[in-house]
Nucleic acid binder design. Structure first.
Length: 535
RNA sequence: GCCCCCGUAGCUCAAUUGGAUAGAGUGCUUGGCUUCGAACCAAGAGGUUCCGGGUUCAAAUCCUGGCGGGGGCACCA
């Protein structure tokens, strides 16, 4: 809907990106409004009121019945009311397009790769890691809605110091389980999880593992952790197209080849026996990092170079990495790789989400995987269900730190706004079911009450919501929109009848309800949330 | 010490990217089921947007100086 209005305003000489068109929920300020006149006033050095009058008159001149009213208000705002016929026609379009309503072709013929979660395989996914799941998934779906071919990917740091520590921890519990009295390894992983794995390892691998067989134990442990973590992710509706493992990059020689390429092109320098990344480009940030240690082994960053080399050379148009904020220091190094591997820095995004703080009755719980004090994603899903968890996480902007109080979880379970949203959908589906067959209509002109119009307007906003999110990646916009759409429908449901209505209002309202159900389903879908028929 | 994020109603979060009277949920007070499902609707109370200064028609938002919280600055991943 915005596109049409923007086109009409920009025809009158205001640059499209300067118009700042706003949807107005309260009709007293119009269906949409713009502050564009303030800009014109400055350019022409006239009063904002005069500029608004002038601009409004120009728009009115080209008006062909699209706007029912154009009004200057306040210090120079222009408020637009749009003809009911426009919204009635849009509602028919919704019915016509169904699942395709809201899609755009901004990414037609283009590819996007989105990496998210990528939790270290040293234990179960905890509540902090889990935040990246709904975020990445919803973003991936936004790209799909925009016509992109999307690859969802997960990176597994399945080798290195942390894995050795995991092995040592598992071996400790393995020995303990067999009745030995081993010493707990320094910096080993606390918590129940390693012990549970060790117990099943005794059953699966036998009782004769020696210290030199620790790799068997590690491989068994990693398998158990993968099983657990990808199962949890699947409960959140997340499935990956690519799961890349660091060990695989090393064993295939990809890491070695990437190092060699950087070396031959002069991007590595030697210092104190180690090889350092030294891109020497226009960036000013300090990005120096060890790529090959003085003992000759590559660091994790070496594999990251190989992995991003693969991403940048994969023919994708957009590359997106979603990390926790603690990876902040990693960004400049990764960004420096774009130029080196011939990828546009403007199409590479590293999106960070802030931490999740867990409280219990107001008291902050310190989360640490090593110390074994963390809340797992599975615990929360079991408690509130995947839909409520996804909606909760998506409700706040990725840049804000969120607090999660476990004492509130149970209470929130019943009161979670996701049910308000899903219930609106259920109500609509109920009406449609009870209607049975009804005549399809091509004329919705009887839909003219305030609640009819507001519902149609809100539905017509959906494609704009998708388009805006594609630009700024603020997927939390969806939860807001979903809530508002639901509220508008609940209002409609209270005030207007469908089943008892006479024709032609009955069929028209039926069409409206069906259109609503479609838009709501698409809204829930882009968040990765289910659309239940009953609750 | 340097860098990033945050600070908005008792609590958890929004605010269309600088717009009009800062909004929702939750909690609290009150009214509404003989009518498509009340997991709903309606009404009320609740604010120095952490503090100071600046920029302009307009600041929660931008610049600056503080205060407070979180994270990062490894030959760990």
């Amino acid at each position: 809907m915005k596109e049409e209005i923007l086109a009409r305003i920009s025809e009158c000489g205001v640059p499209r990106d300067k118009i700042g068109l706003e949807f107005q929920e309260n009709e007293s300020l119009g269906h949409y409004s713009t502050s564009a006149a303030f800009l014109v006033a400055r350019q022409k050095n006239i009063s904002s009121k005069a500029a608004a009058e002038e601009l409004a008159a120009l728009i009115e001149k080209n008006n062909d019945g699209f706007f029912s009213r154009i009004e200057v208000a306040g210090a120079g705002f222009i408020n637009f009311w749009i003809s009911p016929a426009v919204f009635q026609k849009e509602t028919l379009t919704i019915l016509n397009k169904g699942e395709a309503y809201g899609k755009n072709d901004a990414g037609k013929g283009r590819k996007a790769r989105v990496e998210y979660v990528s939790a270290n395989p040293t234990g179960p996914i905890h509540i902090g890691n889990a935040r990246g799941g709904p975020y990445g998934e919803s973003l991936a779906r936004t790209f799909l809605m925009s016509g992109y071919e999307v690859t969802r990917e997960y990176y597994n740091n399945d080798i290195g110091g942390q894995i050795e520590k995991l092995g040592a921890t598992l071996f400790y519990w393995y020995k303990k389980e067999l009745g030995g009295d081993p010493i707990f390894p320094e910096n080993g992983y606390q918590g129940e999880f390693p012990r549970e794995i060790a117990v099943s390892a005794v059953a699966a691998l036998g009782r004769d593992l020696k210290e030199s067989d620790v790799d068997n134990l590690i491989n068994f442990g990693l398998e158990e952790i993968y099983k657990e973590n990808f199962d949890v992710l699947e409960r959140l509706g997340i499935k990956y197209d690519i799961i890349r493992e660091e060990s695989e990059l090393i064993s295939s020689g990809a890491t070695e080849r990437a190092i060699e390429e950087l070396r031959s092109r002069g991007f590595l320098k030697e210092y104190e026996g180690a090889l350092w990344f030294a891109p020497k480009d226009e960036f000013l940030e300090d990005r120096e990092a060890v790529v090959v240690k003085s003992d000759g082994t590559p660091t994790y960053f070496a594999s990251d170079i190989a992995y991003h080399r693969e991403k940048f050379k994969s023919g994708s148009n957009k590359i997106i990495d979603i990390f926790g904020s603690n990876h902040f220091g990693h960004i400049p190094k990764l960004r420096a790789l774009t130029n080196i591997f011939g990828f546009s820095p403007d199409d590479f995004y590293v999106l960070l989400y802030q931490s999740v703080r867990v409280k219990r009755g107001g008291e902050v719980l310190k989360m640490s995987k090593r110390a074994g004090t963390y809340i797992t994603a599975r615990e929360v899903i079991d408690e509130v269900g995947p839909d409520a968890m996804i909606f909760s996480f998506l409700s706040s902007a990725s840049t804000t730190h969120i607090d999660f109080d476990l004492e509130e979880v149970k209470k929130r379970n019943m009161k979670n706004p996701v049910y308000y949203v899903q219930y609106a959908y259920v109500r609509a589906r109920n009406v449609i079911r009870k209607l049975g067959e009804y005549d399809s209509v091509s004329d919705l002109s009887v839909l003219a009450s305030d609640t009819d119009i507001l519902l149609m307007r809100k539905m017509a906003e959906f494609p704009d919501i998708i388009a805006e999110t594609l630009k700024d990646f603020c997927v939390h916009r969806y939860t807001r929109y979903a809530y508002e759409l639901a509220r508008v429908f609940h209002n409609f449901y209270e005030k207007e009848r469908v089943l008892n209505e006479d024709e032609p209002a009955k069929s028209a309202r039926a069409a409206l309800v069906e259109a609503f159900a479609g838009v709501m389903q698409n809204t829930l879908s882009v968040m990765g949330i289910s659309s239940p028929e009953e609750m």
